[in-house]
Design a protein around this nucleic acid. Structure first.
Length: 211
DNA sequence: GACCAGATGTACT
DNA sequence: GTACATCTGGTCT
């Protein structure tokens, strides 16, 4: 999962276009694996390669914040156009971030659950209390902590290089590396809790066997 | 691996 | 006012 490109080149990569996010949410979740999530704050830029994501299918999905058409100040960003960052606060101490998908009034999103460092690793590890390696961002709240993302980043446009964006650096994750399954932590959602809407890169499979 | 406390925003009564 | 949350880290087994 090492980046094939040097950091300076990573930062020049074009953000994924709006139309990438406006597609079917499950497709977006799958295609986000292997993409690079970049974060700029001041002069500092850090980046993670996404390795885990979950789809949340809006009004018909009991696990989604917008289930049943629920519309509140908190989830307003989900109701907007695809290609924006939806950040929420949970459990009284954690932030989680999502990429909004589809089009306005279709409130679906992809939860960014995990990534591995490709740039600014030391800065991210420092924010994570010195934790490095896989522990750096192998959970949605850890990912936000490593990237210093909070509610003030809610609504950020992912299609420009303003603060947070996602780019394709040419790295492609083959289907054989990907495992799918039910989403995490949504047991309250009844039948929807069992839907296979989680995509994860199995790092064990991503390392070519020794010859 | 299982268990559980932690700390507060958010939704809803 | 109350219940609960798209989780994490520490502890114990």
């Amino acid at each position: 999962m090492e980046s094939p490109l040097p950091e300076t080149t990573l930062l020049r990569l074009a953000p994924l276009p709006r139309r990438f996010y406006q597609r079917e949410t499950q497709r977006v979740a799958r295609d986000l694996l292997g993409k690079v999530l970049l974060r700029r704050s001041g002069d500092e830029i850090v980046a993670l390669r996404l390795i885990e994501a979950e789809a949340y299918l809006g009004v018909g999905d009991a696990a989604a914040h917008t289930f049943g058409g629920r519309r509140t100040p908190r989830n307003a960003t989900m109701w907007g156009d695809g290609g924006h960052l939806y950040v929420y606060f949970t459990y009284g101490m954690h932030h989680c971030c999502n990429a909004v998908t589809r089009t306005p009034e279709v409130p679906e999103a992809v939860l960014l659950r995990g990534g591995v460092a490709v740039a600014g690793r030391a800065a991210m590890a420092a924010r994570r209390g010195g934790r490095d390696g896989l522990e750096l961002a192998d959970g949605p709240a850890k990912l936000c902590q490593a990237l210093a993302i909070d509610r003030t980043d809610d609504g950020t446009d992912l299609t420009d290089r303003g603060g947070v964006w996602i780019a394709d650096d040419g790295f492609s994750v083959p289907d054989e590396w990907i495992v799918t399954g039910p989403r995490i932590g949504v047991g309250y959602a009844g039948e929807a809790a069992q839907w296979p809407l989680r995509w994860r890169v199995d790092l064990a499979r991503s390392v070519p066997p020794a010859r």
